Amino acid sequence: MTKFLLAVHVIAAILAVGPVAVAASMFPPAARRALATAADDLDDPRGSGAVGTLHLLHRICRVYAVVGVVVPVFGFATAGRMGVLDSAWLIVSIALTALAALVLVALVLPTQTAFLEGGAGPERAVRLAMFTGLFNLLWAAVTVLMIVRPGSTTGA
């Protein structure tokens, strides 16, 4: 059962967090392009132009953020089965995961929404790129901790 839970946890992380990381990273450059060509896309906010791209990327981020809730759920189940819930590396991973979720929900998604509502300028694109980079850096740190597991006695 542990191997099944771990497999679902890893697959969910790849399929849920991966698209958010990629779409969120693509959003700031697409936002800068949209700002540069805003006059061309204003008539068709959900069209195939730069603004349409922003809507698509934001939707991917929102939907996969919700799907991403599966990752910690199966992570806790796996950790419980492995008996490592009190391990320092796991506690740090949980804290970093919570921080990444907070960055996504409180900083990345609202800033994306501001772009879609037309209330953001070029300086906001820079801030959004920073928030997105922080989100991705936190997930990279969690991934490294999950692989290296400092102090693990499992031998892996």
Score class of each variant (00 low, 15 high):
L107K: 14
A141T: 06
V66I: 13
R33H: 13
L42N: 01
A12L: 10
S152L: 03
L134S: 06
T53K: 11
L137S: 11
I60D: 05
G151A: 08
H9D: 09
V73F: 10
A156S: 11
V142R: 09
I11Q: 04
V66R: 10
I147C: 06
A23Y: 00
G52A: 03
M26T: 12
A129D: 14
D40I: 07
I11E: 03
F135Y: 15
G83W: 09
D41I: 00
R32G: 07
H9N: 09
F115M: 13
F74M: 12
V66C: 00
G155E: 02
V148K: 05
L102Q: 06
V8H: 08
S87I: 00
V70S: 13
L35A: 06
L35F: 03
S25Y: 12
G75P: 09
A101T: 13
A79R: 08
V103A: 03
T154H: 07
R32T: 15
A98N: 07
M146K: 06
T2W: 08
P150N: 06
G47Y: 01
L128W: 11
A7E: 05
E117A: 11
A77C: 02
M130G: 10
L90C: 04
P19A: 05
R33I: 04
G52L: 01
P45I: 02
F115I: 13
L15I: 07
P19M: 05
M1I: 14
T2C: 03
L99V: 14
A36H: 08
A12V: 02
V22N: 03
P28W: 04
I94L: 14
P19D: 05
G68W: 03
G47E: 01
V105R: 10
S152I: 04
A77N: 00
